[in-house]
């Protein structure tokens, strides 16, 4: 997926990352998030991207980008090579969900995962009205969507528990990018998690 500048989750993610950290951005798009982190936080960054046009755009942006398919793992990266591995609005497009989460925590100390919440009330209302949801965070029609996994905050947290992953932090945003603090599975449109494997 292509990042767009000024996305609310960018600031959240940037706030979790210390200056000088090594960051891997999976599905880095045109490299906007990494560029933001390099310029604002002085990180050392690498992106992974599958799409030709995005790879070209990322190189044009002066970002280190490795063309590759997340479904095939992260073989070219060594164990614990990064402080943070970011998967921004991409988990729902990956078939091997558990595989990619394990790989993220193999190559990185911490995983930062953001994804659209399918149980967001407007999405639920849309389905009740008989149509698949299209929103700020789910900006596709059913027939052109890259999304292959449909899940909610509760679903994701259940998977983390099953895999023994520790949720260090969670932020939930509404469609305007404002923080949601109550009834998050119902009122949240986008969730951002910070995960580790060990306490």
């Amino acid at each position: 997926m292509t990042h767009t500048l000024g996305r609310p989750d960018f600031e959240l993610i940037a706030g979790w990352i210390e200056p000088g950290h090594r960051v891997l951005d999976l599905g880095c798009g045109d490299g906007s998030l990494l560029k933001h982190l390099i310029e604002q936080r002085g990180v050392k960054g690498v992106g992974v991207e599958i799409d030709d046009a995005n790879v070209l755009a990322a190189i044009r942006n002066g970002i280190n980008v490795i063309q590759g398919n997340l479904e095939r793992g992260l073989d070219e990266f060594a164990d614990q090579a990064f402080d943070h591995v970011v998967l921004s609005r991409t988990l729902q497009t990956v078939r091997h969900t558990e595989g990619i989460l394990r790989e993220m925590l193999r190559v990185g100390r911490e995983a930062v995962v953001s994804f659209p919440n399918f149980a967001y009330w407007k999405n639920l209302r849309s389905v009740l009205d008989g149509r698949m949801p299209v929103s700020e965070d789910l900006p596709y029609q059913w027939y052109d969507s890259p999304n292959v996994r449909f899940f909610t905050l509760l679903d994701f947290e259940a998977l983390c528990a099953k895999m023994g992953l520790i949720i260090r932090e969670r932020s939930v945003l509404d469609e305007e990018g404002k923080p949601v603090t109550s009834e998050v599975n119902f009122l949240g449109s986008l969730a951002v998690y910070r995960l580790t494997q060990h306490r």
């Binding site: 050392k44 690498v46 070209l56 190189i59 970002i63 280190n64 980008v65 490795i66 063309q67 590759g68």
Partner: peptide, 8 residues
């Protein structure tokens, strides 16, 4: 940790 980009 070298700066590297890779295009396939």
């Amino acid at each position: 940790g070298r700066n590297v980009s890779y295009a396939e």
